[in-house]
Simulated assay, not measured.
Amino acid sequence: MRAALTLAIALTLVAAVPVALPEDDSSRFTYYTMPTMAAGPCDLASGPDGLMWGEDILSNNIFTINQKTGVVKEYPIPYTGDALPITNLPTGGPTENRGAFACAIRLGADGNMYAASGVRNQLVKINVQTKAMTILNPPGIGPAGNLEPFNDLWTLKTGMLFTQTTGNVITYYDYTSGKFTNYNVPTPVAGPLGMYVASDGWAYFTEFFANKIGRFNQSNGEIQEFPVIDPLGAGPAVIRAETPGLIWFTALVGGSMGSFNMQTHEIKIYPNNIPLSLPSEDTVSPDGRVWFSTIAHSSINYVQPATGAIVNIEQPINLLPVPVNLPVGLEVAVNYRSGYIWFTDALYNRVGAYKL
Rank of each mutant, 00 (worst) to 15 (best):
A104G: 12
R106Q: 10
M133F: 04
L147C: 00
V124T: 07
N121T: 12
G159L: 07
I141T: 15
I141D: 07
P149I: 01
L107I: 11
G145R: 06
V128N: 03
Q122R: 13
V119W: 05
L161E: 00
L156C: 02
T130H: 12
L161V: 12
R98Q: 06
R106M: 08
M160S: 02
G111L: 13
G194F: 04
N121W: 03
T171P: 02
N184W: 00
V169R: 14
P192V: 04
Y183I: 04
P192F: 06
N97M: 10
T181V: 13
M133Q: 10
T134G: 02
N184M: 13
G167I: 05
D110K: 11
P139W: 04
I170M: 10
S177Y: 03
V189D: 08
G111P: 00
I170Q: 01
N182G: 00
Q122A: 09
V169K: 15
T155G: 14
T163K: 01
G140D: 14
E148H: 10
M160Q: 10
I126L: 11
R106F: 02
T163E: 04
I170N: 01
V128T: 10
F180C: 02
I135E: 09
G191D: 00
L161P: 00
V189N: 09
Y173A: 05
G178Y: 02
T187V: 08
T130F: 13
I126Y: 03
Q122K: 14
N97W: 08
A132R: 11
K131R: 15
Y173D: 01
G140S: 15
G118N: 06
V128G: 05
Y172C: 01
T176V: 11
T158L: 08
I141A: 14
T134F: 06
K157A: 15
G118I: 12
N137K: 15
P149N: 10
N137D: 07
A100W: 11
P188N: 05
Y175Q: 06
